[in-house]
Computed example of a mutant assay.
Amino acid sequence: MTARDPGPAAGVTVGVEEEFLFVDVGSRRPVPRAGAVLARLGADAGIKPELYESQVEAVTPVLTSLAGVARELVTNRASLARAAAAEGVAAVGVGTPVLAGPRPELSGGDRYRLVARTYQGSFADYEACGCHVHVGVPGDDLAVAVVDHLRPWLPTLLALSANSPFHHGRDTGYASWRTIDQARFPGGGIPPRFGDFAGYRRCLDRLVDCGVLIDERMTFWAARPSPRYPTVEVRVADVAASPDGALLQAALVRGLVRAALDDLGRGREAPDVDGQLAAGALWSAARYGIHGHGIELTGGRRVPARALLAALVRRVRPALEDTGDAPLVDTLLPPVLAGGAARQRATAATGGLTAVVDELAGLLTEPVAGERSAEHVPVPCDRMS
Rank of each mutant, 00 (worst) to 15 (best):
R266V: 00
A3Q: 13
C129M: 06
F20E: 07
A45I: 09
D171P: 10
H134W: 02
G195R: 09
V257S: 01
L312F: 04
P380F: 01
G169Y: 03
T96V: 15
V313R: 15
E19C: 03
R28N: 04
G35T: 13
L157P: 04
G88N: 09
R383W: 14
A278Y: 10
S161R: 05
T179E: 14
F123L: 10
P335G: 09
S54N: 12
A251C: 12
E53T: 10
G294Y: 12
V234H: 05
G245I: 06
F185H: 05
L63V: 08
L66H: 08
V98R: 02
G275E: 15
A246D: 02
A183V: 02
T298G: 04
E53S: 14
T219Y: 00
L21P: 06
E50N: 08
E366L: 12
Y119H: 15
F22L: 14
L282T: 05
V25G: 11
V232E: 02
D274G: 14
W283T: 01
T96R: 00
A85I: 00
D5S: 15
A259E: 13
G169P: 07
P192S: 07
T347W: 11
A279T: 12
E19P: 06
A250V: 09
C203R: 13
P230C: 08
A39C: 01
R4N: 13
A259Y: 02
A175T: 11
R77S: 03
G136Y: 02
R317N: 00
A369D: 13
A159I: 04
P97R: 04
L63K: 09
P335V: 13
L277T: 06
T323C: 10
M1S: 13
E296G: 07
R228P: 00
E375N: 00
A34G: 05
L320N: 07
A67Y: 06
L63P: 08
L73V: 13
R343H: 12
Y112N: 05
R287P: 05
S373V: 07
G121D: 14
G289E: 10
V16H: 05
S385E: 01
V31E: 10
L282S: 03
R103V: 14
P327T: 09
D148M: 01
A162T: 11
D140W: 01
P192N: 09
V316E: 03
A278R: 05
S373N: 00
T298I: 11
P104Q: 04
R29S: 06
S122N: 12
I190E: 11
R254W: 01
D141P: 03
S385G: 09
V98K: 03
V135K: 02
